[in-house]
Simulated assay, not measured.
Amino acid sequence: MEYAKLGHSDLQVSRVCLGSMTWGVQNNQQDADLQINHALEQGINFIDTAEMYAIPATPDTYGKTETIIGDWISRHQAQRQNTIIATKVAGPGMHWVRDGGPITAEAVIQSVEKSLQRLQTDYIDLYQLHWPNRTSPHFGKQWPNTFSFDEVDVTAQRSQMLEILQALQECVSAGKIRHCGLSDETPWGISTYLELAKQHSLPKMVSIQNEFSLLCQKDWPYLIEHCHHNDVAYLPWSPLATGLLSGKYANGARPDGSRWSLMNPSSIYRSSDLAHQAVAQYSQIAHDLNITPAQLALAWCNSVQGVTSSIIGATNLSQLKENIAAFDITLDEQALARITQVIKQFPAPY
């Protein structure tokens, strides 16, 4: 297993981060235990979760994943100090999480306390803001004029960001969190947080996790360059595009127990004709290389300059083993050239 520095922090994280959002819906405690134990045996030391998990997010699944991880931690205290746990405070929009309100200082303090209780730990290694209080170009909103920049009150947003940083500082000073990070943010968001942190001697964000895959490269090179030069780790989430890049949803398939089988079809915006055409071509390249489509996608993501650690998820141990093995694969120049041609043909398929 290879490791990389988590931004400007002193943490060395595995190039593979174990995602957990299926634990509590598609997976139970026993499944999670098997995945965590196997991941640690392979040298993975980085686990990512969130207060809003499991997914699909509902009032009934809220907090379940952290609780499952906390159960594991309670039985493996000796391994806690060598395991880097990342979690997130939910942003606005879900009525069952703080009445759907925005992230505030009070929300940060409250959420940290509840996450610590569910995780059964004294500290969180990386505490992240799951998404901004303002609308951002994520989750299918990246198309021009999908939302209006003019609707954002910049002064109010900066004030909220400063308040959030001050609350994070309180938690850092109390030893409840070690480092702070972002999720689903933009270059403006990152730069504003970094600027405010410098001005007011508050915690500097060490990382950002955004969607990034063979089907979603909107962060390259502009946001990733910004991260690199500011020593902010870049953590791709959904490098398999919610499983689409594994090929399992080809020809309209919805395998029982899969994530898409649990979702309202109208909400699966990644399932476009262009996306399926791209996946078919990537699957052919994988076949020619004698690896799986999922391994091709993960090996490519791991090869992109600026990527620190890719967040993978699995619903069974076989999938997890397949995914971890991808990080031992080095794609040669010919394979990368073929992949680049498909990217150019389908630069933004959803």
Rank of each mutant, 00 (worst) to 15 (best):
G19C: 06
S20A: 12
M21L: 08
M21T: 10
M21Y: 13
M21K: 08
T22Y: 13
T22H: 14
W23I: 01
V25I: 09
Q26K: 07
Q26C: 04
Q26I: 08
N27A: 15
N27F: 02
N28M: 05
Q29D: 01
Q29A: 15
D31S: 14
D31W: 05
L34V: 03
Q35K: 13
Q35E: 07
N37W: 01
H38Y: 15
A39L: 03
L40P: 00
L40D: 01
L40E: 00
E41H: 12
Q42K: 15
Q42F: 05
G43P: 02
F46I: 02
D48C: 05
A50L: 05
P56V: 02
A57T: 04
T58P: 01
D60N: 13
T61Y: 08
T61C: 09
G63Y: 03
T65H: 09
E66D: 12
E66I: 02
T67E: 11
I69P: 03
G70W: 12
D71K: 14
W72R: 11
H76D: 05
Q77M: 03
A78E: 15
A78Y: 10
Q79Y: 07
Q81I: 01
N82G: 15
N82K: 15
T83C: 09
I85C: 06
I85D: 05
A86R: 03
A86P: 00
K88F: 06
K88A: 11
V89M: 06
A90N: 12
A90K: 14
G91A: 06
P92S: 08
P92G: 03
P92R: 08
M94D: 05
M94W: 10
H95L: 02
V97D: 01
R98Y: 10
D99R: 12
D99S: 14
G100F: 11
G101E: 11
G101K: 15
G101V: 01
T104M: 07
T104W: 02
V108N: 11
S111M: 04
V112C: 14
K114R: 15
S115K: 14
S115D: 02
L116C: 08
R118G: 02
T121H: 12
T121L: 04
Y123D: 00
Y123F: 13
I124H: 08
L126S: 04
L126R: 10
L129T: 08
H130S: 06
P132A: 14
N133K: 09
T135G: 00
T135R: 14
S136E: 14
P137M: 05
P137F: 03
H138V: 05
F139M: 04
